[in-house]
């Protein structure tokens, strides 16, 4: 819980920061306990991307040191890769996962001492009945209990909107 209230205006991307740290000094938001989700629906394609603080997903924000930390890191990445347990578009929309891409920032060569780390994941679905896509359930707290709130930016054909899911809320409404 301490993490959930520790808001740091630091590091959007450790990779970007480390590469450009010498000439460009700009840092994005990084709030422990808060996962940022972005949802786009275009045609029959549904894209969901999320950025979760390393502290919430892995438990630490530095390159794994030793087998215990390495296992924790691998476990977190594996949980993000297998999304069907916690990321569920409306069943009626019959969305099938097409691709998953998980990118760690700050856990490898790009790590900068004292900086934050995070995991980014991008999921693409193809939906047979996209008109029935009413909502997406994001049960991230089931796999990463340190998740406190989810801030979701949703881009639909008729505009964009933001939804904040407080503890206990899992549904991103796509037809508000």
């Amino acid at each position: 819980m301490r993490n959930s209230i520790a808001a740091f205006l630091l590091v959007a991307s450790i990779a970007a920061a480390s590469v450009r740290a010498q000439d460009v000094r700009q840092l994005g938001p990084h709030v422990h306990g808060q996962t940022r989700v972005q949802v786009v629906v275009d045609g029959d394609t549904l894209d969901v991307s999320l950025v979760i603080p390393g502290a919430d997903a892995v438990g630490f924000e530095h390159p794994p040191a030793g087998p215990v930390e390495a296992a924790a890191y691998k476990n977190a990445v594996a949980k993000l890769r297998v999304s069907r347990r916690w990321l569920q578009p409306s069943a009626a929309a019959a969305c099938v996962p097409v691709s998953v891409e998980v990118s760690p920032h700050g856990y490898g060569q790009d790590a900068v001492v004292g900086m934050h780390a995070e995991l980014e994941a991008i999921y693409r679905f193809r939906c047979s009945h996209v008109s029935a896509l009413d909502a997406i359930d994001v049960r991230l707290v089931d796999v990463f209990p340190a998740t406190h709130t989810i801030v979701a930016d949703v881009l639909l054909h008729d505009g964009a909107l933001r939804q904040e899911l407080d503890p206990g809320m899992v549904r991103i409404d796509l037809k508000p």
Binding site: A12, A16, R20, D23, V24, V40, V41, D42, T45, L155
Partner: peptide, 19 residues
């Protein structure tokens, strides 16, 4: 394409030459 909206947004927000 709307699918590129968030990637475009990130690219602009990380634009190195100008904030």
């Amino acid at each position: 394409s709307r699918l590129s909206a968030f990637a475009f947004q990130r690219a602009v927000n990380d634009y190195p030459e100008e904030p």
